[in-house]
Simulated scan of single mutants.
Amino acid sequence: MSRATGTQEHRAVPRLGRSLSVVGLGTWQLGADWGRVDEEEALGVLRGAYAAGTTFFDTADVYGDGRSERLIGRFLRELGRDGAGAGAVCVATKAGRRGVQDPAQFTLGNLRAWTDRSRSNLGVDTLDLVQLHCPPTPVFSSAAVYDALDTLVEEGRIAAYGVSVETCEEALAAIARPHVATVQIILNVFRRRPLEEVLPAAAEAGVGVIARVPLASGLLSGRYRHDTVFAPDDHRAYNRHGESFDVGETFSGVGYANGVAAAAEFAALAPAGASPAQTALRWVLQQPGVTTVIPGARNVEQARANAAAAQLPPLPDGTLRALEALYDDRVRAEVHHRW
């Protein structure tokens, strides 16, 4: 079992009562919807990320219908047996997307059942952080839902709760609630609107910001071309127009042809010594108000390279201005008004 050998900056989340590594690990790809990753490869990614200093892991009950949670649960048991400090790891899961997307389904009974299933999958008595998983918009304004989550905290089933959102308006509604600890939102070089209101509001309220889809579903890695073929079970093949869930989750809502062209221009702006993916992560990390960024990884090398982005120096002003101009010229009209 690998012990943690790398170190990362950790940023405090006042409402969560703990600090998170600035580069976390998103584990959607370990469950489903990104092509098949076998169990040993998935565990290798978890071990590699931890060895590189990552202590924040994000999952959901719907990723592989619990497969991602169960893999993390096995990893946590390894840490416990190895004496490597499982208690220092923070695991965030999500709930609410395994059934019908109806606000009436978000009851105390259902939330209790959903979180109990996650507790079983992860093998823990208390979940570190539970996030509402991009539920119907009215849920974010429901006092009864937040009351139910408060009850789960009182019962010891969960330690804290947050939300994962599609839109800035949903994020602002959640931040206004007194016990919401974190907001997870898409934020990357091609999705900048959260910078305007969400990040300042979260910082003022003491709410952590978890930046997801930081590589625009891999576009910002610079690896993809117009003729790249994705596996049939990869959402980048089957959800390009929002056929299965919000299209903003796939390539950040940027049309693929435009995204590939814009990504090539982005890659040319990467500083010496940094890959395009690391440059994209570094950009997210230096936005005021961001707590952690959660890129996915399909192998150990990707996990280590992502974690290394935390050690890069801040991008210089000239690069930041060039990236803003790229967004304005290529992407803004396509995405800015939508989310």
Rank of each mutant, 00 (worst) to 15 (best):
P295E: 02
P194Y: 09
L16A: 09
A307N: 03
N110P: 09
R191E: 12
K94F: 01
R11W: 04
A60T: 02
V209P: 06
G66K: 06
G99R: 11
L30Q: 08
A211K: 03
L195W: 08
P200N: 04
N258D: 15
Q101T: 03
E301D: 13
H235I: 14
G17L: 00
D329Q: 12
G318W: 03
L127F: 12
R11L: 02
G123N: 09
A95I: 14
R81S: 14
A52Q: 07
R47E: 15
D102L: 06
W339M: 06
D33I: 12
A322C: 03
R282I: 09
A272S: 13
T151H: 07
R18D: 13
L108V: 13
E9D: 14
E334F: 10
L76E: 08
A280F: 07
P14R: 04
Q29M: 12
D233N: 15
E40G: 04
F57G: 11
A92I: 12
T182L: 03
A144H: 07
A104E: 15
A257M: 01
V254S: 03
R177D: 02
E40Y: 06
G222C: 05
T279H: 06
D128L: 07
L219R: 10
C168T: 11
A308Y: 10
N258W: 13
V37G: 12
R18N: 10
N188W: 00
R117Q: 15
S2F: 14
L326W: 03
A159R: 15
L132I: 10
R338N: 00
L79C: 07
I158D: 03
L172G: 03
Q286C: 07
E69F: 13
A32L: 09
Q29S: 15
S19Q: 13
V209C: 10
S221P: 00
E40F: 04
S244H: 14
D147G: 00
L152D: 10
I210W: 04
A203P: 06
T7P: 08
L76D: 07
V23W: 12
G6W: 08
D61T: 11
P276C: 00
T5S: 14
R97H: 11
A261I: 12
Q302R: 05
F140P: 01
R157N: 04
R192M: 02
G208P: 04
V331E: 03
D128Q: 00
F106S: 00
F56G: 02
S221W: 08
A148S: 13
N239H: 06
A32D: 15
H235S: 13
P135T: 00
R282S: 09
G64A: 11
D33V: 12
V100G: 04
T292E: 10
A95S: 13
T319Y: 02
A171W: 02
V209F: 02
A257N: 12
V163S: 06
V180D: 05
G99E: 11
R67C: 09
G273L: 11
E197F: 06
S221T: 15
A237F: 14
N239S: 06
L25T: 11
T319F: 00
V153D: 00
H336K: 01
